[in-house]
Amino acid sequence: MVVRLLHGAGLRSSHLHAMSLGSVALCLCLWIRAKTVDQHERGNAERRALFTGLWPPTLWLIGDSLREHE
């Protein structure tokens, strides 16, 4: 059902795979940035990077589902 909605909205598997790779890069950038902030803000910045690190597998699997649907 969700896959049909995403496909109908114009998303393709290559879009989701690219988003997955982009979120890996975003996670790395946020992690590096977390090392540059002061100690008081570092915990928040690291949690943001870890949360972003959870996105790639989800996006990749949705992309795989869309590829099977295509």
Rank of each mutant, 00 (worst) to 15 (best):
L30K: 11
R67F: 01
H69R: 13
P56G: 01
T36S: 15
D64Q: 10
R47N: 13
L5G: 03
L66H: 04
G22R: 00
L30S: 12
V24Y: 03
S14C: 05
L61F: 10
R67H: 06
L5S: 04
P57E: 05
A49Q: 15
E68H: 10
V3A: 12
R48T: 11
L28Y: 12
V2A: 05
S13G: 09
E41W: 12
L66E: 07
F51G: 05
R42T: 05
H40M: 03
W60T: 02
G63W: 00
E46C: 02
S14I: 04
P56V: 04
L5D: 02
R48D: 01
L50W: 12
R42A: 13
A9L: 15
Q39C: 01
M1E: 14
L21N: 08
R47V: 02
L54Q: 09
L54R: 14
R48E: 05
G10C: 09
R42P: 05
P56M: 01
M19L: 15
F51H: 09
W60Q: 04
G43R: 13
S14R: 12
Q39K: 11
L21P: 00
E70H: 01
S23A: 10
E41S: 12
L50G: 01
R4Y: 09
V37H: 13
S13C: 08
H7P: 03
A34I: 03
A45M: 14
A49F: 12
L61T: 04
A45R: 15
A18K: 00
L16M: 12
L61C: 09
H15V: 01
S23R: 14
D38R: 14
E68L: 04
L66Q: 00
R12V: 01
R12Q: 10
E68M: 04
M19F: 10
Q39N: 10
N44I: 09
A25I: 15
L11E: 05
W55K: 03
L30M: 09
P57C: 04
R42L: 08
S14N: 12
D64S: 05
R48Q: 07
H17R: 13
A45P: 06
R47Y: 04
L30Y: 06
L61S: 07
A49G: 14
T36M: 15
H7N: 08
S65T: 06
T58H: 02
G22S: 01
R33K: 07
W31N: 12
S13Y: 07
G53N: 08
L21S: 13
L50I: 10
G22M: 01
G22Q: 02
H69N: 09
H7M: 04
Q39W: 08
H7T: 13
L26V: 08
E70Y: 01
R4G: 14
F51Y: 14
G8V: 09
G43W: 06
G10R: 02
T52G: 00
L5A: 06
A18H: 03
H7I: 00
L21A: 11
T58M: 08
R67L: 02
W60Y: 15
H7V: 06
R4S: 12
R67E: 00
K35G: 11
D38A: 09
E41N: 10
G10F: 02
T36K: 14
A9C: 04
F51S: 11
G8D: 15
V24K: 03
L61N: 08
L21Y: 13
P56A: 02
S14A: 08
W31D: 06
L6I: 06
A45V: 05
